[in-house]
Design a protein around this nucleic acid. Structure first.
Lengths: 349, 349
DNA sequence: TTGCGAAAACGAAACGTTTCGTATAGTGCA
DNA sequence: TGCACTATACGAAACGTTTCGTTTTCGCAA
């Protein structure tokens, strides 16, 4: 490949002048700029990112670390980040942790090798110990997306997860349900724990105490939510409603119900958190608590780029976004005419 | 950050020895290896990827260029590629073209800046002219995924798209349909054109000629498929069945049907190409022609890594995978009891 | 003890940039 | 015409590696 030297030779100028033209880092006469640009075009010169990064100590790479890019929720984040990065002249490097701390380490190491200029991370765990481990692996401007980790000084952009859990549960309580199952993630993940807290809060607001045996731990994935659903359904007295705390868990739940031949809201009311892109195609359309993930993704990358540009160290501040209950048809009044005759709330007069 | 020099000093060896240890590129005594490894661990040394790439002329970056990472189909590809890359010590750089040739150029330029060692590309167009443009922008080992571009010497891993189109159409013909709508992509895209060819082939196999006015051009996205569906439904004599050639188009079609209050297969039979992850949650479950995308993704990255490792130039060979018809419930016999009383094929005795 | 060959370790150059101190050309004014 | 100053352009060093020719060390046979 051609180098800046080739450009310089062809344009009849010094290497440093070409550099000045490329980076607009020093005044260059119109005439020279034109000659250099012509030379660049003529020989098809493309700067060597590695060399630039080496010499300047700055790279134009942004790392994005998510649980799983194949999950549409995070894929959407990736696309949003990519868009902003591309127009800012940055390149995105995306990696999935698979919710595994060890793989997370491995991924962060790759990010260090590439000397990314900044990171957007959705960490695998939230406890202080993990935070301490993380901080040793990250030495660049970082934004924590939709996840809080104890003791980390980075900026956080997240949903009010307690409120998200509360909204989902409160809605079911308002429909008369009290035996409400909850499928959560692994304890120790702020997103999961907070949504769980919101669930309890909703009960307390009604002067009630939730039955702890109705809360089932899973992971954030489809399979464990599926299994948890079956476990809940197999109880002597199954819940009349179930809350799931992520989109994939809702999918797992729906598959489990289908297996059992159960249809919401007739046989069971359900409310999820995080919207599903294809939700509106389902019948019944699932009632969910929506989080503004795209907005948060955009805010994250913009904040990160700002930090990088201004060499600001993170302020440790948190930007907390409010979730919103989207009432559709998968939850119904408990006291409505029973099984197969219950009607979705939105159909009520 | 610490450098190889710091490691050398701490281990009391020469820089070149540390390099030899890191890359296992020259014999080093057990004793020295241990000392170097200890030093690396002690000071938390991470090699500078840019410097390595600069000096060695090889990077450990793989570029993946897809139409849209937010599309679950391509997100799945990204995840698969990422997995293989990670275990091979490579880093993946993913970018979306948005099916836009200009953005494609921009993305490829970023890939050149990063000096990726190889590329997996799903190009935006298939004509020879575009091929000529592409070849000038790509100077590294490349695999074309699920797309053929005229005149490009790269290896191709793809589905038998003619067969995919034929399978979908043949199935509907076998159910007695002859007025079969087809929603295709922009002409000039091999994937779309081939599936279109398959559609015609199925007709010809039956000694029939499809009505060209039943074929509607769209893009590969949801919106245009939605609009195309409405256009087809608004004809004086609407088709009795519709074929869509991508997952997102199927989604657009389903939304359009829902808007019109139509339910497959009672009001209209539909068959899509490329499976939807959540298909089994829908009612009726859509009948589709499945392509082995994950398998193809894995083959692509493995082939690419092999080319890079062995410094083989692409052989220009094509690996063509067979699609498979998955019969579910969205298509029914034309002569079955009409509207609202037709039954899905799989329910028939 | 010396000499020899193999094994291990070393040192310096080079990769393509950016950066910064220095040199040159150009301009306006005395 | 000469000078001071500004606007441009230049040149060389340095960034962190790899690579390869050279040197040192080591073990063993003579």
């Amino acid at each position: 490949m051609s180098t800046i030297k080739d450009v310089a030779r062809r344009a009849g100028v010094a290497i440093s002048t070409v550099s000045a033209v490329i980076n607009r880092s020093a005044p260059v006469s119109e005439d020279t700029i034109a000659r250099v640009d012509a030379a660049i075009a003529a020989i098809g010169y493309t700067p060597h990112g590695g060399a630039q990064s080496l010499r300047s100590g700055r790279s134009r790479l942004i790392g994005l670390v998510v649980p799983n890019v194949a999950n549409p929720h995070f894929a959407a984040v990736a696309r949003e980040v990519e868009n902003v990065c591309l127009s800012a002249g940055y390149t995105t490097v995306v990696y999935s942790t698979g919710q595994d701390a060890e793989r997370e380490s491995q991924v962060l190491k790759m990010m260090r090798v590439q000397r990314v200029a900044g990171l957007i991370v959705i960490p695998t765990r939230s406890d202080a110990e993990h935070g301490a481990a993380l901080i040793n692996q990250i030495h660049v401007p970082t934004v924590l997306l939709d996840m809080y980790v104890e003791g980390l000084p980075y900026d956080v952009i997240k949903t009010d997860n307690i409120e998200a859990g509360r909204l989902a549960t409160e809605y079911l309580l308002s429909l008369g349900h009290t035996e409400i199952g909850l499928i959560v993630g692994i304890p120790g993940l702020a997103t999961s724990d907070d949504r769980h807290t919101g669930y309890r809060k909703a009960f307390h607001d009604h002067g009630l105490e939730p039955d702890p045996s109705l809360t089932w731990p899973g992971n954030f994935d489809q399979q464990t939510a599926h299994d948890a659903t079956l476990a809940l359904l197999d109880r002597k007295s199954p819940p009349t409603a179930i809350v799931t705390i992520s989109n994939m868990m809702t999918v797992g739940l729906l598959f489990a119900l289908r297996e059992r031949g159960l249809t919401p809201p007739d046989d069971l009311s359900i409310v999820g958190i995080d919207d599903l892109e294809f939700a509106r195609l389902l019948d019944p359309q699932p009632t969910t608590v929506e989080t503004p993930i795209l907005l948060m993704a955009r805010k994250s990358i913009e904040l990160l780029l700002k930090q990088i540009a201004n060499r600001i160290s993170p302020t440790g501040e948190r930007s907390i976004h409010q979730p919103q209950l989207i009432v559709r048809q998968s939850a119904a009044r408990l006291d409505a005419p029973t099984s197969k005759h219950r009607r979705a709330v939105h159909d009520l007069p």
